[in-house]
């Protein structure tokens, strides 16, 4: 570690401690806000090189995709709102790097009307261009259709019936890649990236009724719920939050925004834990005998 990094870490600790001291002295929560802002911005200015360990769930998902035969058909969903882009977009990007590197054919879709099709269009095209992939041959964006339960169930019988046209209005029957993709029978893996309860529907309808492998990338607050599906063997791997995205980036050796975000997330988490601990120590010593509050 260089002398500058040691100085940077000392500065981080001293400034954080000062802000915490000011918070407790004044009771002004704005010092907490300032500290959070500082710990988010600092790692953008000075990169903190942190090793990312890989969780068993992320490894399971990566291995499942990696063992697919080349040119397999994979459905990648963009089931998230713009508000969670920081966590979910890096997952989609890392997944697309992996899939295009393996020459998989990618079908993208979304169950989110607000921005889902636009995000899918932008992210897929940007990554596809890096691998010289052609729309309609290597990937297709089906876009959005209302009523997700009917959409997910209906694709089990006929994708063309549910999506007569792709996101830009081209009839699906005219898209070369979709000629031999009729329903879930022709899809080898489904990679769901989501920030809402749609994951339950993918598991209950698509995985349970059509016996197709489903792996997921979800936001950090959602991840604990889906350990139940991992434990039962229904879900084939999971990425939890920005850390999960960073794990997939590390496995794919494509350091992206999630890996860069680990510095900020580490510092903010540590600050919150330290502030809670210090608050509890003060609470413990200031508590009067018999005080139950």
């Amino acid at each position: 570690m260089s002398i500058w990094m040691i100085l940077a870490y000392i500065f981080l600790i001293v400034f954080g401690a000062w802000l915490l001291y000011k918070t407790f002295r004044t009771g002004d929560r704005r010092f907490i806000y300032l500290a959070v802002g500082f710990y988010v911005v600092f790692p953008i200015l000075i990169t903190l090189d942190l090793p990312t360990s890989i969780s068993p769930e992320a490894e399971q998902l990566y291995d499942a995709v990696d063992t697919l035969p080349d040119s397999s058909v994979v459905m990648l969903t963009f089931d998230y709102y713009p508000s969670t882009l920081a966590e979910t977009e890096p997952m989609s990007r890392a997944a697309l790097h992996h899939l295009f590197r393996k020459d998989c054919r990618v079908v993208t879709m979304t169950t989110i009307p607000l921005g889902g099709p636009s995000i899918a269009e932008r992210v897929t095209r940007e990554v596809a261009d890096e691998y010289d992939k052609v729309y309609g041959i290597d990937y297709v964006n089906l876009g959005y259709k209302a009523n997700y339960v009917a959409v997910l169930k209906g694709m089990g019988t006929s994708i063309k019936k549910i999506y007569p046209t792709d996101n830009s209005g081209t009839p699906v029957s005219e898209i070369p890649m979709m000629e031999d993709i009729r329903n879930y029978d022709d899809i080898d893996f489904i990679f769901v990236v989501a920030d809402n309860a749609i994951v339950d529907i993918w598991m209950a309808i698509v995985n349970a009724q059509y016996d197709i492998q489903v792996g997921t990338g979800v936001t950090a607050v959602m991840a604990p719920k889906f350990f139940a599906y991992i434990g039962s063997g229904q879900m084939t791997g999971m990425l939890g939050g920005m850390k999960g995205a960073a794990e997939y980036e590390a496995l794919e050796k494509q350091a992206g925004t999630a890996s860069k975000g680990m510095g900020a997330q580490s510092l903010v988490h540590l600050f919150i834990i330290v502030s809670v601990m210090v608050g509890n120590i003060i609470f413990f010593f200031e508590r009067k005998p018999g005080d139950k509050k």
Binding site: T23, G37, A86, G115, I119, F271, G279, N280
Partner: peptide, 27 residues
């Protein structure tokens, strides 16, 4: 649209930090 929605969601980090430090007490 996307930056505004992301900003609104990011604001939660400040409130969560403040709420955590005030609410998490070993009572």
């Amino acid at each position: 649209d996307a930056p505004m929605m992301s900003t609104m969601f990011a604001m939660l980090a400040f409130y969560i930090a403040s709420a955590a430090f005030r609410a998490f007490r070993a009572r």
